[in-house]
Simulated assay, not measured.
Amino acid sequence: MSLTQDLDTILDTVLPSDPSFRRIERAVMDDCISDARRRASEGSTEAFLLAAMRLLALPGNGHTRLIPNDGIQVLPLRFVSLGTAVRLMATALETEAPRGELVAVNGTPVGEIEAAAETFLAGTPQRKRVIGPILLAWPHALARLGFSAGEKTTAYRLKDDNGRITDLTVENGRTVPASKLYPRSEHGRADPAWKPGSLAEITDWQGMGLSIELPSFFDPDGRALPEAIAGAAKHVRTGPSRNLVIDVRGNTGGDFLKTLPLVDAICVDQSRRVAVLIDKFTFSAAVVFVAILRHRLGDRLTVIGEEMGDGFTFFAEGGLLDLPVSGAVVRYSTAFHDWENGTSDETTPPEIARHMVPAGKLTLDREWDETSTAGNEEGAFYRRVLTSLDD
């Protein structure tokens, strides 16, 4: 089989059915298709995947993108964007390296590499920062972007929390499957294999209020999320009228329709004040959850964190497409969502359109960085937020 078959699969399935491509000029699209076809005919999987990434990034829609993780090898380093920095969070192959901020790769500042990679990355600037770090551990991508130090090694400069600088050199032949360090749905945690232990973790902070952690709305078996949401909703409805902290940081989405009973429970008490915690790893259905809360609670909702990975207007639904030759996966969209203005079009499923509300533009009430949650294993951060809601 040829890589051209993978490209034809994209052209036959994604481009005709994904409405986000309708606004792309045909000449621009044809140029990217020609480049991808040329790379495919040359037989280089990595070159083809980068070209396909550029093609699928054209609409600027993060739900439509090529996910190369299952088709490439990377150096044994897990980089994650936290706050405004890229940090080394984990290693593989017994690689010794200090955890900390990535300053430069092959002598080039990280920010310069991120800027050069933008056309290969889909979605908002925040989503680009979520999915982009894999390129920093991918020798072929660094070479394609013009930041390779040669064929044999890649050099990294790291800064730990005390400001100490460490230089790390990794042999380019010492790689692991990218999926080992970079999950398809990037959640930003140090352990790439992290899975939520509970879909709704409720804590009562001794009269100060409640915190509800909602780490994911994905529910493959169709039972776990409704049960978790029903339990959380019952707790909110039957407990005393108290303030709430709702944490959807790292929630990459799922089915927002199943979360509506909790939204109703949160909003029924007009005296309650609510804080929602968000970050760049908040996507899709979790964004919709925040939009509905914003619309229904108004000034009673305090938004804390950083911009989410998706805005209130995006394309979604669709599905996943396996590329059998390269081993990569394509995520594509089939429906328009506009939670900013509360509008839909012919591609929006009726069951979603009937719940659509005009939430307006989301603005942060308070910003935070990754150091703001230090010590949260004892609830210090949640308690500070709950206390601040009464100020």
Rank of each mutant, 00 (worst) to 15 (best):
R144K: 15
R87T: 12
F147S: 07
L82M: 10
H63P: 00
E118M: 07
G132L: 11
A85G: 11
E96F: 03
I131E: 15
P76N: 09
R127A: 14
L75N: 04
E94L: 06
L93D: 13
L93T: 00
P139D: 11
L121H: 14
L82G: 09
L93A: 13
A90W: 03
R129Q: 11
G83W: 02
L75I: 04
I113W: 01
S81W: 12
T64W: 05
G111D: 12
V103H: 07
V103S: 08
N69Y: 12
L142V: 07
Q73A: 13
E114P: 00
P109V: 06
V74D: 02
V80N: 00
L93F: 00
E94S: 14
G123N: 11
L145T: 01
R127W: 10
L136Y: 01
E101F: 00
R87F: 00
L77A: 14
T108L: 02
L145A: 03
A85Y: 03
A122R: 09
R127S: 13
F120L: 15
V110M: 02
L102A: 01
G111H: 04
R144M: 14
A92Y: 00
G132V: 09
N69C: 07
L102W: 02
L142S: 06
A90H: 13
A137G: 14
G123I: 11
A141V: 06
R99M: 13
A117I: 10
T124W: 11
T64L: 08
G71R: 02
E118W: 01
E101I: 14
G62Y: 04
R65L: 08
G123A: 12
V110P: 03
R65G: 04
I113V: 11
E96V: 15
P109A: 11
E96L: 11
L145Q: 02
L93K: 14
D70W: 06
I131H: 11
E101H: 01
A141H: 05
R99A: 12
G123M: 12
R65P: 00
S81T: 15
A116M: 03
L66H: 04
L93Q: 13
E96T: 15
A92R: 14
V103L: 12
K128L: 10
F79I: 03
P139S: 08
